[in-house]
């Protein structure tokens, strides 16, 4: 294939991946990695490198929109970033030591989980009776504009949330994705934070987490300029378009279709990993 054909095809697919990632809230990385490996036969390590940089770009680019909503909690985010960055370095360390078959299988499982979470209902968790001592010591609390006016919230089960966040960081570093779904899990299920606070804070954390393993990816040669350039520019452009569409579009149907595509890609990745084609 010529350089121009390869670059423009990847650029257009990355725009689509970025748009879908923004519309569904799953991020562009989970789509672009299977597209590059399954469709273009690109080695999964190049795909992971290109995905990781586009994750940093979209997370940072979307921050302005999220901050305007005033929902993200900068303190909770910063505290949990200790766990995600350490996890990300550990994950990037593992990547060079695990076979690509293993990576493909883990990736497939994460895709299936992401598809599953986009179906799960999103109600705010019921807070526990006693306020958490560790959480108040670490100032992991805030208020958000809920349906019944300004509602206070406080984190619970901090060590559990911290542990799950380390896992989210490890997945991010191992696979080159934002692992937003696991970060949200740590905050809204483990720490019982309001769902909106969890998703916006998670988006804010994704860039910092990815930056912790990006240097290691670059040094290993996973970030190849010929692939990373069209992917990063495409996913960034696509996610900006997607965020604008989000205000108008009716996304419920799209979300179901997309979740099914993600699930299919998940099975495909697991199959290819087990049969050692990736």
């Amino acid at each position: 294939m010529t350089v121009i054909a390869f670059t423009s095809q990847i650029f257009l697919l990355s725009i689509l991946a970025g748009m879908l990632g923004a519309l569904t809230g799953l991020g562009g990385g989970v789509v672009i990695i299977p597209v590059l490996t399954l469709l273009f036969g690109v080695d999964i390590r190049y795909a992971m490198g290109a995905s990781l940089v586009s994750v940093i770009a979209t997370s940072s680019g979307a921050a302005v929109a999220y901050v305007r909503e005033g929902l993200s909690n900068i303190r909770i985010g910063m505290f949990l970033e200790i766990a995600t960055t350490l996890g990300a370095i550990f994950g990037a360390f593992l990547t060079a030591r695990v076979s690509t078959h293993g990576i493909a299988i883990v990736f497939g499982v994460v895709l299936l989980y992401s598809a599953f979470t986009s179906f799960a209902r999103k109600s705010d968790p019921v807070p526990g009776a006693a306020p958490d001592r560790l959480a108040s010591k670490l100032e992991l609390a805030g208020t958000y504009a809920g349906p019944n006016g300004l509602t206070p919230y406080c984190a619970e089960r901090v060590p559990l949330g911290f542990g799950v966040m380390f896992g989210a960081g490890t997945l991010s570093g191992l696979l080159g994705i934002g692992s937003g779904a696991v970060k949200v899990l740590a905050m809204d299920q483990a720490m019982r934070l309001p769902f909106k606070v969890s998703t916006t804070t998670s988006n804010f954390m994704i860039g910092v987490t990815a930056a912790a393993s990006a240097g290691i990816y670059l040094e290993h040669g996973y970030i190849d300029p010929g692939i990373a350039m069209p992917v990063m520019l495409g996913v960034l452009a696509g996610s900006l378009i997607g965020t604008h569409l989000l205000v108008r579009a009716h996304v419920a149907t799209l979300k179901v279709i997309f979740a099914m595509v993600i699930a299919a890609l998940g099975f495909e990745m697991i199959y290819n990993g087990i049969s050692k084609r990736i």
Partner: peptide, 28 residues
């Protein structure tokens, strides 16, 4: 993004050259 774009445009200066083999990983 602007720096990547500038590099990308220069990169496409010889658009008809063949892409390297990306199906096998080399650190480069």
């Amino acid at each position: 993004a602007l720096v990547v774009l500038a590099g990308g445009l220069l990169f496409l200066w010889h658009p008809w050259s063949a892409i390297p083999d990306y199906s096998h990983f080399r650190a480069g």
